[in-house]
C-alpha cells in the first residue's frame, strides 16, 4: 500500500499555505498578478492531465492544447450563446472534452508512439482550423468575445475570488490524480507504459486503459479550458496554439511520471515569460532549448533531477551506517 512520507506532506502543506496566501500578498486589486496566479492553476491542471497520458501511460499526445480549446469553447458556447448556468456549462464542457478524448483514445489503441504523435498534432491543427472557419459558432478568427464572469447569488466574481475557485479545482484535480495513480488503475497505466505485452498478459485491458486515460486526461484539460475562458473573457484559436509549446515544455521540463513534476514545471515555465518580458521574442526558442537540454541531461525533468541528486547525497550520507541500502524512491 502506498505511503507518502511525512516530509512530503509538510512540503504539500507549505505549498497550499503559500497558494492560499499569495493573492492577499500581491493585493486583491492587483489584477496583473492575480491573472498570473490563475494561470498557474489552469496550467497546473493541464500539465497534470498531460502527465497522466505521457508520463504515466506512455502515450505521446502532442495535441493536448486542443482539448483545452474544446473545453474553453464548449463552455463559452454553452454559457454565453446558449445562456446556461455556469455550473451546467462546466459539466457540459468537461463531458464534451471527455468524448473528444475518447477519439484520441481510439488512435492510441491502434498506433505506435510516433504515429500517435503525428495523429494528435494533426488533430490539434484540425481543431484550430474548425475554430477559425466555423465563424457562426466560435467567432472565427476574431475570437469568441464577452464570456461573462462567474456570478454567485447576484455577486459578480472578480479575479480575487476566481483565483480561489480555480485553486480549489486545481487541488481537487491533483487529489484525483494522486488517488488514481496509487490505485489499480494507476498501476495498470504504468504497466502499459513499461511493457504493454506483459501488461496484457497480466490481464490488463491495454486498449481499454489507453481509452480511459485519454478520456480522463482530455476531460481535465477541458476543465482547465473552462477556467481559462472565464479568466480571459475571450478565446481565440491563436491563444491555444501558443499554449501547445508552453504546455509541452512544462510537462517535459517539470518531470514526467511523478505528481510533483507538473507542479514544478508549471511554476518554473509559467514564471519564465514574466522573467523574460523584455526578451519575449525569444521565448519560443528558450522553450525549445530547455526541452532539448532537459532531455539531454535530466530525462526525468527538473523534479526528477533534483530528486536523484538528493537521493545521491542521501546515499552517500547513509553509506557509512547502512551499506547496500538504496535511496528510497519516494514511492
Amino acid at each position: 500500500m502506498h505511503k507518502t512520507k511525512k516530509s512530503t506532506w509538510v512540503v504539500i502543506a507549505v505549498m497550499i499555505a503559500v497558494a492560499l496566501a499569495a493573492p492577499v500578498a500581491v493585493g486583491p486589486k492587483n489584477n496583473y498578478m492575480l491573472n498570473i496566479l490563475i494561470s498557474y492553476c489552469y496550467f497546473g491542471i493541464l500539465a497534470a492531465s498531460l502527465n497522466l497520458l505521457i508520463g504515466y501511460t506512455g502515450q505521446m499526445s502532442l495535441g493536448h492544447a486542443a482539448f483545452m480549446a474544446i473545453g474553453g469553447y464548449a463552455y463559452a458556447i454553452l454559457n454565453k450563446t446558449m445562456g446556461l448556468h455556469f455550473l451546467i456549462a462546466i459539466v457540459g464542457a468537461v463531458v464534451i472534452s471527455f468524448i473528444c478524448g475518447l477519439f484520441i483514445g481510439l488512435a492510441c489503441s491502434k498506433l505506435s508512439t510516433i504515429f500517435l504523435a503525428m495523429t494528435t498534432s494533426g488533430f490539434a491543427k484540425a481543431v484550430t482550423l474548425i475554430i477559425i472557419n466555423e465563424k457562426w459558432l466560435t467567432g472565427g478568427a476574431n475570437g469568441f468575445t464577452g464570456i461573462p464572469k462567474l456570478t454567485v447569488f447576484g455577486h459578480k466574481m472578480g479575479n480575487f475570488e476566481l483565483y480561489y475557485v480555480a485553486l480549489a479545482i486545481t487541488l481537487l484535480v491533483f487529489l484525483f490524480c494522486y488517488r488514481l495513480i496509487y490505485s489499480k488503475t494507476g498501476r495498470a497505466m504504468q504497466a502499459v507504459r513499461n511493457a504493454p505485452i506483459a501488461a496484457a498478459a497480466m490481464g490488463i485491458n491495454v486498449n481499454g486503459y489507453k481509452f480511459l486515460v485519454c478520456g480522463i486526461s482530455a476531460a481535465l484539460a477541458g476543465l482547465a479550458g473552462c477556467i481559462y475562458a472565464v479568466n480571459m473573457n475571450y478565446l481565440s484559436a491563436d491563444m491555444f496554439n501558443k499554449t501547445s509549446i508552453t504546455l509541452l515544455t512544462m510537462t517535459v521540463c517539470g518531470g514526467m511520471g511523478s505528481l510533483f513534476g507538473p507542479v514544478v514545471g508549471t511554476l518554473v515555465i509559467g514564471t519564465l515569460p514574466e522573467l523574460l518580458r523584455t526578451f519575449s521574442g525569444y521565448l519560443d526558442g528558450v522553450y525549445g532549448v530547455m526541452i532539448i537540454l532537459v532531455m539531454l541531461f535530466m530525462p526525468e525533468g527538473i523534479y526528477g533531477g533534483i530528486k536523484n541528486l538528493a537521493g545521491k547525497v542521501m546515499t552517500r550520507k547513509n553509506a557509512a551506517s547502512q551499506p547496500g541500502k538504496e535511496a528510497q524512491d519516494g514511492k
Binding site: 513499461n194 498478459a201 490488463i204
Partner: peptide, 23 residues
C-alpha cells in the same frame, strides 16, 4: 512468463506483483 524478460522496469518488485493481481 516471457522468454525475454518483460518486467515493469520502473516499478518496485512488489508493484510488479500487485499488477499481476490486477484481474
Amino acid at each position: 512468463t516471457f522468454q525475454n524478460i518483460q518486467l515493469f522496469e520502473s516499478m518496485s518488485a512488489l508493484e510488479n506483483v500487485m499488477i499481476g493481481h490486477h484481474t
